[in-house]
């Protein structure tokens, strides 16, 4: 009886893992086999991966570029915004924080539609990568602000700044010497979240992209629709290789930020 009560949760966990992992393994293997329909017996190859890199390296590089640009913009906007919210706690700050978080509640498609309605007629902007960047910044900024804010709220920022001021530090020195270094765990966690989300973002990007501006996930959809299965699977593999380390780093950084907050 006792062994059974132990075994059942274990079996359920293993089944759940299998449910999640088997499609992934299958997809990865499909990208590495010579012919998927003949199975593994047809042999393993990196041919499809090479094909993906040849066909879609532009998309991959564009995604990395947009993710990094998005990171820079969210750092420049998000860290001072979080600082301002942390220094002035009150009802107005609460409302503002919710307002910044609003894009999270709106479907990416709706957000993209709004951007198209507003800026779609500005030809130069509409066809530029910065158009996609604006969408990504709108979508990722709340993650940066919240991550930094939660760390700043946990330290006694006011007293630390008063201490620095009493030693002769002006507002700019205080921000870069005291605020930023102490918010670093939150900034790091926020940065990894922003990069991961930006690289993986599909909904909004799919609406905003042009034939000449395809990001990694848009290219993925494209390959599923128009390439042979092995190429699409190899693309998935490339996507995994990029996103899984980012996800793991994000988990680690968030856990670290959580520890600081206690």
């Amino acid at each position: 009886m006792k062994s059974l009560s132990k075994a059942i949760p274990l079996i359920v966990t293993l089944l759940a893992c299998a449910f999640l992992l088997i499609p992934i393994i299958q997809s990865v293997l499909a990208g590495l086999t010579v012919n998927y329909f003949r199975g593994l017996s047809s042999g393993l190859t990196l041919k499809w991966v090479a094909r993906v890199l040849e066909l879609y390296s532009g998309s991959i590089l564009l995604s990395i570029w947009i993710a990094l640009a998005c990171l820079v913009v969210t750092l420049i906007l998000g860290v001072p915004a979080a600082y301002a919210l942390a220094r002035n706690p009150g009802r107005a700050s609460r409302v503002l924080e919710e307002f910044i978080s609003l894009p999270l509640a709106i479907p990416g498609l709706a957000l993209a539609l709004a951007l198209l309605q507003l800026y779609g007629t500005l030809q130069g902007f509409r066809t530029s990568w910065t158009f996609i960047l604006v969408g990504h910044v709108l979508y990722t900024l709340p993650f940066m602000v919240r991550s930094v804010l939660s760390v700043l709220a946990a330290i006694d920022l006011k007293v630390l700044e008063e201490g620095a001021a009493s030693l002769g530090a002006g507002p700019a020195r205080r921000f870069f010497d005291i605020v930023v270094p102490n918010a670093l765990p939150g900034i790091l966690a926020g940065a990894l979240t922003v990069v991961t989300l930006s690289i993986g973002e599909f909904n909004l990007t799919w609406m905003l992209h042009t034939p000449y501006l395809k990001t990694l996930p848009v290219g993925l959809a494209d390959s599923y629709a128009s390439m042979r299965l092995e190429v699409a699977s190899a693309y998935t593999l490339v996507f995994f290789v990029m996103i899984v380390p980012l996800l793991m780093a994000m988990q680690w950084a968030s856990a670290r930020a959580q520890r600081i907050m206690q």
């Binding site: 009493s166 530090a169 002006g170």
Partner: peptide, 30 residues
């Protein structure tokens, strides 16, 4: 005059030591 130009020294109840700096870094900051 603002606090940073008054050339005062202050010891706070909670000490307000900078956690991102060593003892030497804290003492040398001013």
């Amino acid at each position: 005059q603002s606090v940073e130009t008054r050339k005062i020294g202050m010891v706070f109840q909670s000490y307000a030591l900078f956690p991102n700096m060593s003892v030497r870094g804290n003492i040398g900051y001013g």
